[in-house]
Design a protein around this nucleic acid. Structure first.
Lengths: 144, 144
DNA sequence: ATGGCACACGTTATAGCATAACGCAATTGA
DNA sequence: TCAATTGCGTTATGCTATAACGTGTGCCAT
């Protein structure tokens, strides 16, 4: 009795660890590092970073979690249910606006940006695998 | 005799350490991590990571070096002389295409992408400070 | 049923990336 | 001349991520 468990709330059938990590991220107001997640889950039996990283790898693969490269941290995907996490659909690249003051992250998507970038790639014969777009700055509230 | 030295080849007057780091990056075919740079410069008296990081911070500030967030590594700016490194001009955000096979990096710029992103920011009251765009995938040669 | 496979898990150890905190030396300019 | 600034060097430390090992479980083709 170790493998996937009928998930109470999440999309694909997640394992116990995956559910725990996803729940922590979903509740968070800001991105969390793997080690911060680890600390939050010590009460639930987590002892080592790998337990977190393995869950994060899967959740990222499922599209339920995004990694913020410029922060070395993770957020739950903001596109609820139907839009984002469906298996094979992929609505393209997601962009993030990260407030350096309050830590809040806005996730958005822009087809034009997507097209421009993939046009560039096509023109150069470059085959994109994963695209990162992160804007760091101050959110409206913090810029005031 | 410790401060800036008339630089033999570079743009602003760089210090000795800044020149050494910049030269190593300029000669490199692919991005380098701070520790790789450190190893290359042991012969020149470098002993500690901070010596590298401090030089990288300045070079980045000057616009002569870019940090690749998804790689935790650094590259010399590909825009030669006039275009990129001039003090106050800033031609906007730069994007990178990073080959995961050979490590080669292409630096480019797209006004439309820039505009799209800053329009989004404006509409949300978000004040951008620094924008990261990195496409990882396979370059033409490696995709063949 | 059983042997092989794929996968999640747990643990220990280690690798790789980045900065804090101290003090010294040189430069600048009121 | 004195204070402020900047670069430098050193030691120590902290944060991020993965390697390598072994265990247990479910699946399913033979």
């Amino acid at each position: 009795m170790n493998a996937p468990i009928s998930s109470p709330v999440s999309s694909p059938a997640l394992t116990k660890n995956q559910n725990l990590v996803f729940d922590v991220l979903t509740r968070a107001e800001a991105p969390m590092s793997a080690y911060t997640i680890l600390d939050k889950l010590r009460d639930h039996g987590f002892r080592a970073p790998l337990q977190v990283y393995r869950a994060l790898d899967k959740l990222t693969e499922f599209g339920m979690v995004h990694r913020l490269e410029s922060l070395n941290a993770f957020v739950a995907c903001a596109h609820r249910e139907s839009e984002c996490c469906g298996a094979g659909h992929g609505h393209g690249t997601v962009a993030f606006a990260i407030c350096e003051s309050c830590g809040h992250v806005s996730e958005f998507h822009d087809h034009q940006v997507d097209h421009r970038l993939s046009d560039w790639a096509k023109s150069k014969g470059f085959k994109p695998a994963k695209t990162t777009i992160e804007i760091r700055g101050l959110c409206e509230a913090c810029a005031a």
